[in-house]
Amino acid sequence: MTAELQTWIGVIATLAIFSFLIKENPFYRFFEYTVIGMSAAHAVVMTWDNYTKPFWVNGVMKGEYYLLIPGAIAVLYYFRYAPPKYQWLYRYPLALIMGYNIGYSLAYDPRPFMTQIRGTFESLKDLNSFIYLVIFIGVVVYFIFTFGNKSAAVGKTRTFARYAMMMYFGVSFGNTVQGRFSLLLGRLLFLLQDWLGLVKLG
């Protein structure tokens, strides 16, 4: 068993969080709030290191004074907390960023989707691609004819599409469960290897 203080803190925190599985308790609560507090503190430090410091040190202080213009616009965000009379000012950076992102999205976002749609029809070289196409058409029918269609063909297609989607959600859920087990494995390995020293992997 290790004597490292850092590992012991990790172990106590891990066991505290897992204790929730038995039942809600103060030990769990304490560490839950600790995580929230630490996450907030970490976010502040990361924001300073990744945004504020590079802006001044690598930009403005190296003579790129034009950066002060977007910097000043960004400061307007804080007018959200100003007296109501001045709050409208925060809408300017918001409008700028929204416009920029919408323009960007409209210009570039359709491309990968078009590649996907083209690929659906283009690569019909095996059974899998054929199944993919059939499900694709089924799901499109499902969402187009959501309301008020009494056709039997559409009804059957929609039922087929529903089953296909349920299968996809099942696969997705299964993969998520697999991922969660991996996370649990990581924690168990920490307890068995780093704390108890029962195994030596890696």
């Binding site: 590649t115 996907q116 083209r118 993969n175 998520t176 991922g179 494995l185």
Partner: peptide, 24 residues
């Protein structure tokens, strides 16, 4: 990560992804 696999595999046949390591 495993949770993202099913939403990523569709990019393989179109060549948008050259390959994928699915989870652990």
């Amino acid at each position: 990560v495993a949770a993202e696999i099913s939403s990523s595999v569709r990019y393989i046949p179109t060549g948008q992804l050259k390959g994928l390591i699915p989870g652990m």
